[in-house]
Simulated scan of single mutants.
Amino acid sequence: MAVDLSFYKSHMSEEIRDEGREQGREQGRAQQGAQDVLLVLEQRGLAVSDAIRTRITECGDPEILRHWLARAVTAPAAEDIFEGE
């Protein structure tokens, strides 16, 4: 009994794998972005509450995390990175 494996070599199969890879890269960028924001806040000696840490680590948008990172460099308090949102 032979199993038809042609789907795994098909164009559709490649697209599905490519989408999965891109999602994985996006998640990796978001995780790294969250770590970067937290590192800057902590290195500056700012108190990072559990609520702030959760909000940062649960953010899946690398662009928002980049924005928060830029604010983290000069924010007087950790919660100020979210100002105006």
Rank of each mutant, 00 (worst) to 15 (best):
A72Q: 07
A78P: 03
S6R: 15
V3E: 15
R21F: 14
Q31K: 12
M12E: 15
A70F: 08
A72R: 06
G60C: 01
A78I: 09
I64S: 10
L39W: 03
R29K: 15
E83H: 13
T74W: 09
A34S: 11
A77R: 11
D36R: 04
L41E: 03
I64A: 11
R29P: 02
T57K: 04
P76L: 09
E85H: 04
R21E: 14
L69G: 02
T74Y: 07
E42D: 05
I64D: 08
A47H: 10
S49C: 01
G45V: 09
E15N: 09
M1R: 12
E19G: 10
S13K: 06
S6C: 06
M12L: 15
L39D: 10
G24C: 09
E58A: 09
H67S: 14
A47N: 05
A51M: 02
V48A: 01
R71F: 04
R29F: 06
A51G: 07
T57S: 05
L41Q: 06
M12S: 11
T57G: 02
I56C: 04
H11N: 13
I81Q: 02
M12H: 12
D80W: 00
R53C: 02
A78L: 09
A75Q: 02
M12A: 15
V48E: 01
R21T: 12
E85M: 11
G20C: 07
D61V: 07
F82Q: 05
Q32F: 13
